[in-house]
Computed example of a mutant assay.
Amino acid sequence: MNKLTRFQLMKRLTAFFLLTRPLNVLIAMVSIFIGAFITGTISPLINVLLASLSGGFIAAGANAINDYFDVETDRINKPYRPIAARIITMREGGLFSMVLFSIGVILGLLVNWLAFVVAVFSSMLLYWYSARLKRTVLWGNLSVSLITSLAFIYGGIAVNRLGLALIPAVFSFFYHLGREIIKDAEDIAGDIADRIVTLPIEFGKRKALLLATGIYIFLIGLTIVPYALNIFGIYYLIIVVAIVNAVVVFALFSMWRDMTPNNLSRLSVILKLNMFAGLAAIYCGKF
């Protein structure tokens, strides 16, 4: 294999890796593990690891199929994405996503029957989201938020303690709902070009961002409840107030000062990274 061929191979392998959006995959896997941990056990550990891997593969498949259906929009909004940049063909991207979904579902079956059901449901909903739901007003946002919250529930299922995973699942639902609306406000130009009817397009950017603001204000109040009820300890409260909620407040102020796509894109990334602080808060809340 000559140097040029090796370079081309590495470029394509890197493109397939980036197609999965590895940061999103990592967040999904960590969320599932945390979902198990906060129930008070990670036993049987093999089930937790299998569930985390299953969720990671499903998330990777979802990200790949999303790029498949969003290729025309991405050529306007995100021309560097692997399929939009024509490094990977649409056919390759579609087949790759099906392989990833299949591995995720099979791994779910190895956990238990309920995990298998959730894995199948999640895979089907994520495909439907990319193919249809994301082009509808609010339903796409609700679908993504539901799927992300299911990551915590998936962790609870892995250790047969579903009920105790509901708190982070609820937080995750509202956090992602607000962020998804902000992302839609960022992508207005490309969505119009692709004939996608999102909340900001249907009702205007300001009204959409007002809804996102209301969701986040409600969530900030909601995050105090587990500490007030002695479910989580002082370390949870410190991280939530000093980092998680502080970052959300900063993002809201910045969003209203500057509603340009560049700033909304920056804030979307900041909010994504802030999820790790939220996971750390929940993890530390048990101590």
Score class of each variant (00 low, 15 high):
96 F>V: 04
145 S>T: 07
159 V>H: 00
47 N>D: 14
254 S>K: 15
18 L>Q: 15
218 F>M: 11
240 V>Y: 03
133 L>S: 05
22 P>M: 08
16 F>S: 14
166 L>Q: 02
259 M>T: 14
116 F>D: 04
82 P>Q: 09
287 F>A: 10
175 Y>C: 01
107 L>W: 01
56 G>C: 04
205 K>C: 05
172 S>Q: 13
14 T>I: 10
241 V>E: 06
206 R>E: 15
9 L>N: 12
126 L>N: 07
128 W>K: 13
281 A>K: 00
218 F>I: 08
281 A>V: 03
233 G>D: 03
174 F>P: 03
180 E>G: 12
67 D>S: 14
111 V>C: 03
80 Y>A: 10
106 I>S: 09
227 Y>K: 09
114 L>P: 08
264 L>C: 11
73 T>N: 13
106 I>E: 06
71 V>Y: 08
238 I>C: 07
241 V>Q: 08
73 T>G: 14
16 F>D: 01
177 L>S: 07
64 A>Y: 12
107 L>N: 02
202 E>N: 12
46 I>E: 10
206 R>P: 04
126 L>R: 04
163 G>E: 14
39 T>L: 00
61 G>Y: 05
219 L>W: 02
278 G>V: 01
8 Q>S: 13
53 L>K: 00
6 R>A: 12
255 M>G: 04
251 A>Q: 05
166 L>F: 07
237 L>S: 06
216 Y>D: 03
234 I>Q: 08
67 D>M: 13
233 G>V: 09
168 P>A: 12
199 L>R: 02
23 L>Q: 13
168 P>E: 11
17 F>K: 07
283 Y>D: 03
159 V>I: 01
68 Y>N: 05
180 E>S: 14
236 Y>G: 08
175 Y>P: 03
70 D>H: 13
238 I>E: 04
114 L>S: 07
128 W>H: 12
56 G>S: 06
56 G>I: 02
237 L>Y: 02
151 A>N: 10
262 N>F: 06
189 A>K: 15
224 I>T: 13
76 I>L: 13
89 T>Y: 01
20 T>L: 07
228 A>P: 06
105 V>R: 05
